[in-house]
Simulated scan of single mutants.
Amino acid sequence: MFPGIVANCLLDFFVSMGLVIGGSLLGGFAAVVTHHNPSYTMLVLADDLKIWALVAALGGTMDTLRVIHKGVFSFAVGPMARQFIYLVAAFIGCQIGYMIIEWLVNGSDRHP
């Protein structure tokens, strides 16, 4: 059971991080093509994509809400704790993805 939790945590982490990084980089490319500021666009997109990456990494919120609902009313703490761990892993992935984009953008401002 424990290796399954770790595998799901890693999957949620990297999916959410990849969605933020990939969406921001491609959005930055679109900003270059359309003659907009790519640094600003990438930062805005990274911030906006965090919540969507979190939802996508968890596979939609309905399963998570269903497990939490059953856990609360049936006093099943195990499945609720597992969903919370998955949520935290996906949130950390989103935040690290945002921090990487922020680092890329701020690093590009320092070097002409």
Results as ranks from 00 to 15, higher is better:
residue 38 P to I: 03
residue 77 V to G: 06
residue 11 L to P: 01
residue 3 P to V: 04
residue 38 P to C: 04
residue 26 L to N: 02
residue 44 V to R: 08
residue 110 R to H: 12
residue 108 S to Y: 11
residue 57 A to G: 10
residue 94 C to L: 02
residue 102 E to A: 13
residue 37 N to I: 08
residue 1 M to I: 08
residue 3 P to D: 07
residue 79 P to V: 08
residue 19 L to R: 00
residue 110 R to D: 07
residue 63 D to Y: 11
residue 110 R to M: 11
residue 93 G to E: 03
residue 89 A to H: 05
residue 17 M to C: 04
residue 105 V to A: 04
residue 101 I to L: 01
residue 106 N to W: 13
residue 22 G to W: 00
residue 12 D to G: 09
residue 72 V to Y: 09
residue 43 L to D: 09
residue 80 M to K: 07
residue 3 P to L: 10
residue 80 M to L: 14
residue 35 H to D: 15
residue 82 R to C: 07
residue 74 S to C: 10
residue 102 E to V: 03
residue 38 P to R: 05
residue 86 Y to F: 15
residue 38 P to W: 06
residue 32 V to T: 11
residue 64 T to D: 05
residue 76 A to L: 12
residue 64 T to Y: 08
residue 17 M to A: 10
residue 11 L to I: 08
residue 20 V to P: 00
residue 62 M to Q: 14
residue 11 L to M: 10
residue 88 V to Y: 04
residue 48 D to V: 15
residue 108 S to P: 02
residue 21 I to N: 00
residue 1 M to N: 10
residue 61 T to C: 07
residue 31 A to E: 03
residue 53 A to Q: 02
residue 45 L to T: 06
residue 5 I to M: 13
residue 7 A to W: 04
residue 111 H to C: 08
residue 56 A to T: 04
residue 21 I to S: 00
residue 27 G to Y: 01
residue 9 C to A: 15
residue 112 P to R: 11
residue 22 G to R: 01
residue 55 V to A: 14
residue 96 I to F: 07
residue 59 G to H: 04
residue 107 G to P: 02
residue 25 L to E: 00
residue 39 S to G: 15
residue 52 W to E: 07
residue 78 G to L: 14
residue 112 P to W: 04
residue 109 D to N: 14
residue 68 I to M: 09
residue 103 W to G: 10
residue 56 A to L: 09
residue 18 G to M: 01
residue 35 H to E: 13
